[in-house]
Design a protein around this nucleic acid. Structure first.
Lengths: 343, 343
DNA sequence: AACATAACCTTAAACGATTAAGCACAAATA
DNA sequence: TATTTGTGCTTAATCGTTTAAGGTTATGTT
C-alpha cells in the first residue's frame, strides 16, 4: 500500500538531485557527464526501489505518447481483428501500444474516436476510414498528425496508405468464375462510395465486359450497413429464383459471403453445381464450409506491418512524401468455384 | 499549421486568467462563482478557437486517464475480439477508451503488457489471465489498481471476475452427447492449470461418471499452446483409429474445434454418424459447417458488459468487496450432435 | 600564484492542465 | 461610519518528468 516510487524518491535515496537520476535512467549520462560511481548507485537504487517511470508525465514533457490509435470498422470482424493483432505485435516491437476503436462505418462515431484519440496525443493513427471521413483525415493532416489509411483510401487525399489492388483482384476472381463456365455472375457489394468497393465493382464489370457478358444492374445487389443479414437473405432469394437465376456469385467481403452462405445452405442450393462462389477476404468458415470456398486472400501480415512501418516513418519525418503500399493479393482456389465443365 | 490552442490562449483571448477558463469549461462556475457574462464569453471563445483540452495534462493532474487496459490471450481470436467490441462500446458510453494487448498465453508477455499499461496509468484492467499470472494480478491488487478477470480466474485470488459456470456447461454438453447415444466420448482440452479448463474437464469427467462410463486418459488429449494445428491433427487421427475409436467428441474451445474439423473433413469422417460433436464457444464456422455444430454459447454481451461494470464500480470504490459474476451458458443444439438412435 | 578548463552536480523552468488560497471591491449589516 | 459578508476574479502551487543553464569543486596550465 506504499505510495508509488517517484524519481524524487530515488534521488533522495541516493542523495542526489532528480536531474541526475533522470539522466542516468535515460542513458544520457555521457552528455550530462555523470560520474560512473554515482550512475551505478542510481541504477541500483532504481532497481532496489522498483522505480517505474510515470509515462504520463513523460508524455506531457516530451509530447510523445508512444501510442498508436487504430480505428477500424469493427474490431469483432476477423479481418480487422487479425490486422489488429499484427499491428499490435509490430507496434510492441517498436515500443508502442495500441488503442483501438470501431467506427461502425459511421462518420460521427469515427469523428468522435479520432477526436478523443487525438486529444490523448496518439503519435499516429492507423485508420480504415468510413465513408465521408475525408474531412476528418484532412483535419488530422493539417495538424501534422501522422495518419496511415488501410484497406480503404480516398482518391483525392494525398496520404500514406496500404491497400491491395482491388480492381485486379476482383477482376481475377470473376474471370476465374467465367473460366469455370459461369456466364450469369452476380456480385454482392456494400452500398458505399468508398473507393475500394468501387474498384472491386469495377473489376467485376470489366471482367464481364472483357468476356462478352453484358452487365445487369439486377446482378449487383448493394447491401447497406444496417441489418445486413436480412438484406442479404432477400437478395440471395431473389437471385436464385428462376427468372434471375445466376450461376456464379462473387462476394465483395467475408461478411457478405458468410451471411449469404447461411440462406444458401438452408435453401439447399448446391455449390458449385447450382452456384459457383468466390469471396473476398478470408474466414475460418471458408475452410470448413463444404465445399471449401475460393477466396481472394489479402496478406494481412503485409498490411499490418506496412501500416506500422509507414506510421513510424511519418512520426520521424512529418513532412515526408506520402507513400502508398499496394499489397499483392492471391486467389486461393477451392472447390466452391470449380465446375466440371461439360465440353 | 497553427499551434494547438491551449487553455492559456482561450484565457488571453477573453482577457481572463486560465483558472476561470478551466472552471467554466469544467462546469464548475457555480462553485467558483464565475460571472454569467464572462462564463458565456469563455464558452464562446473556446468554441470559436476550437479549444481541445490536452488530456495528458489533465491526466497528470487528476491521476485519471479514463482508459481501460484490456489484456486477452489473442485479439485475433473471434471469442476475444467479440468481447473486445462489447467492452469498447460499453466503455465508450461511459467515457473510457480501451487499450489492448495479446498475452499469447505467455506470462512474460502478459507481465510486460501489464507493466506498460500500468505505467500509462490505466484506470482499470480487464484481463483474461494466462497461466502463472497470479503474481501479476496480486501485484496490481496490492497497488490498488482495479482488475477484473474474465473468462478465467484464480481459485486463490479474491478478485472481481466474470465467468461462466464451466463445470456445469461442460457437464451438460457431455450429457447431451450421452443422451444422443454416445458412449465413447473424448474431450480435447488445452494443457493448462487454469481453473476454467480444469472445470471443463471436471464437468466432462463427472458426466461420464454419472452415466456409468469409465474415464480413460486416452480420451482426453491436452494440447499445448504452441503449434496447435499439428497436435490437433495427430490426436484426431489417433482417436479415430479403430483401436481407440470414439463416437463423440467434446471440444473445450472454438479453436480446438475449428482445427479439429479440418482434418475430420479431410479424413471423410461423417458427422454425426461416425462422430458426434459439441464445442465450447461459438464461431461463424459452426453455422456454416455441415452439419451445423452444437456448441456451448456464452453470452459475450453479458461478459463484456459485466466486466466493464465491475471495473467502473471498483474505480469508484477501490476497497469494495470483490464481486463475482457467473453468466449462464446455453447449449445450442444443432445437427452435429444429433444421432438417430437405433432403438 | 593566477587563471582556464574540465568534471560533476544542482537549480529551476518547462510541459498543460486543475484548484486551493487570497485579493479587491461592492453590497449588506450594525 | 465601520465592519462584515459576498462576489468575481487572480495567483501560484501542483501533478512527475526532462533538460538547459549555471554553480562548485578539483585539476591542469603557464
Amino acid at each position: 500500500m506504499k505510495k508509488k516510487v517517484l524519481l524524487k524518491d530515488v534521488a533522495e535515496y541516493v542523495g542526489v538531485s532528480t536531474a541526475l537520476v533522470s539522466y542516468v535512467l535515460n542513458n544520457k549520462e555521457k552528455q550530462a557527464r555523470v560520474g560512473d560511481e554515482i550512475a551505478k548507485k542510481i541504477r541500483k537504487a532504481a532497481a532496489d526501489l522498483n522505480y517505474q517511470p510515470n509515462l504520463i508525465a513523460k508524455s506531457l514533457q516530451s509530447g510523445k505518447t508512444n501510442t498508436i490509435g487504430l480505428i477500424v470498422a469493427d474490431i469483432s470482424n476477423p479481418f480487422f481483428s487479425s490486422i489488429a493483432r499484427i499491428i499490435e505485435d509490430e507496434a510492441m516491437r517498436q515500443g508502442y501500444v495500441v488503442i483501438f476503436g470501431s467506427s461502425d462505418e459511421n462518420p460521427e462515431r469515427s469523428m468522435r474516436l479520432i477526436d478523443v484519440f487525438n486529444n490523448r496525443g496518439v503519435d499516429a493513427f492507423i485508420i480504415a476510414p468510413s465513408e465521408n471521413a475525408e474531412r476528418q483525415i484532412r483535419s488530422l493532416q493539417k495538424q501534422q498528425v501522422p495518419v496511415v489509411l488501410i484497406d480503404r483510401y480516398f482518391k483525392n487525399i494525398r496520404s500514406d496508405y496500404v491497400i491491395i489492388n482491388n480492381h485486379d483482384s476482383a477482376y481475377n476472381a470473376v474471370e476465374h468464375l467465367i473460366r469455370n463456365g459461369c456466364r450469369r455472375i452476380a456480385m454482392m457489394a456494400y452500398e458505399t462510395h468508398l473507393e475500394h468497393m468501387q474498384q472491386r465493382i469495377g473489376g467485376y464489370r470489366q471482367a464481364l465486359k472483357d468476356n462478352g457478358i453484358e452487365f445487369r444492374e439486377n446482378w449487383l445487389p448493394r447491401v447497406s450497413y444496417k441489418d445486413v443479414a436480412h438484406q442479404v437473405e432477400d437478395y440471395i432469394k431473389a437471385l436464385t429464383r428462376p427468372r434471375l437465376k445466376v450461376d456464379g456469385f462473387f462476394f465483395a467481403t467475408n461478411t457478405l459471403a458468410v451471411e449469404s452462405l447461411k440462406p444458401l445452405t438452408r435453401m439447399g442450393i448446391r455449390i458449385p453445381e447450382d452456384l459457383a462462389i468466390v469471396s473476398f477476404d478470408e474466414s475460418d468458415a471458408f475452410d470448413l464450409f463444404y465445399p471449401p470456398v475460393t477466396y481472394v486472400s489479402q496478406s494481412l501480415d503485409a498490411i499490418g506491418k506496412g501500416a506500422v512501418d509507414l506510421a513510424l516513418a511519418r512520426i520521424l519525418d512529418k513532412k515526408k512524401k506520402p507513400e502508398q503500399l499496394v499489397i499483392a493479393s492471391k486467389l486461393v482456389i477451392r472447390e466452391s468455384s470449380i465446375r466440371k465443365r461439360s465440353k
